[in-house]
């Protein structure tokens, strides 16, 4: 049992060390949401009228509305980036090292997921810290109550990336992932606009938004940041986590007749 924990701690520590070593990655993870927050939101705030919807108890400026969505975006990018580095061979060697450990694969993949989620949470708190410096702050307890939810959403989005990395070879570059995963997930969600706004425009798009796991991740984060639990959103996020983990496990189980796989990548 101790060997399991030692491996888990080592995998998380390695991810943290790498994150610290790659300052550029940290910087871009921080700058991206800040541009949305400080530029996009500033230009957009007058265009979008928000009514009072839970969890907000009062009228809120637009930049306050999009904070949870941007937290989700950070985790979405982080999940996709780590999966892409796998697809793209940069990390394939280290994945081989991981998978040839004598520990069970499900544990190794879980450790990898947890490591990614921990890094994404650090990014989120750095972002919230900078946002607070610009006067966009949240209730104090919200920073704490968001932590377990961020862990859940971080795992879910990381599992999505892992499932994609194991199953899809067509996402050859980051532009492909941007177009086919990140943009649809981000724009077809409640990250930038409340869903009732979307419903006024298109019933179909509204339906898609409600089916999007990222919407539920964002809503779970939004409520948690105000010390509330959105049980429906949490339930959806957990269900999505289960599905993506199952797909990732399936994808990283050695197969007798692979169409592609670790063995083929060189």
């Amino acid at each position: 049992m101790r060997a399991y924990l030692v491996a888990l701690v080592a995998i998380v520590a390695r991810e943290l060390l790498r994150f610290v070593a790659q300052r550029g990655r940290f910087l871009s993870a921080l700058v991206r949401p800040l541009i949305w927050l400080l530029v996009f939101a500033a230009g957009f705030r007058s265009a979008l009228g928000l009514s009072i919807i839970p969890p907000y108890a009062t009228y809120i400026p637009y930049e306050v509305y999009i904070v949870p969505g941007l937290c989700g975006m950070i985790q979405l990018f982080n999940g996709m980036q780590s999966s892409l580095s796998l697809v793209y061979d940069r990390e394939m060697g280290s994945m081989r090292l991981l998978l040839t450990s004598p520990l069970p694969r499900w544990w190794l993949l879980f450790s990898k997921l947890l490591a990614g989620a921990v890094v994404s949470i650090l990014q989120v708190y750095a972002f919230l810290g900078v946002a607070a410096l610009f006067g966009i702050d949240l209730p104090l307890w919200g920073y704490l109550s968001a932590l377990p939810v961020l862990l859940l959403t971080g795992l879910m989005l990381g599992a999505l990336g892992l499932a994609l990395s194991s199953g899809i070879r067509q996402l050859e570059n980051f532009a492909g992932v941007m177009n086919f995963v990140i943009f649809p997930a981000f724009f077809l969600s409640s990250a930038l606009y409340p869903l009732w706004k979307m419903q006024e425009s298109s019933q179909l798009l509204y339906r898609l938004c409600t089916l999007n796991p990222f919407t539920h991740a964002v809503e779970a984060i939004r409520f948690a940041l105000y010390g509330q639990a959105n049980l429906a959103a949490l339930g959806w996020t957990i269900a999505a986590l289960a599905v993506f983990v199952a797909l990732a496990l399936l994808g990283y189980t050695p197969m007798r007749q692979p169409s592609r796989g670790l063995s083929r990548r060189r």
């Binding site: 080592a10 450990s101 004598p102």
Partner: peptide, 21 residues
């Protein structure tokens, strides 16, 4: 190569040790 180039030699070795239990 499966070394982490950004990490020290010792970190690389201790990471492997942990993976091997």
């Amino acid at each position: 190569s499966t070394l982490d180039l950004d990490l020290s030699v010792r970190s690389n070795l201790s990471y492997y040790a942990a993976l091997r239990g």
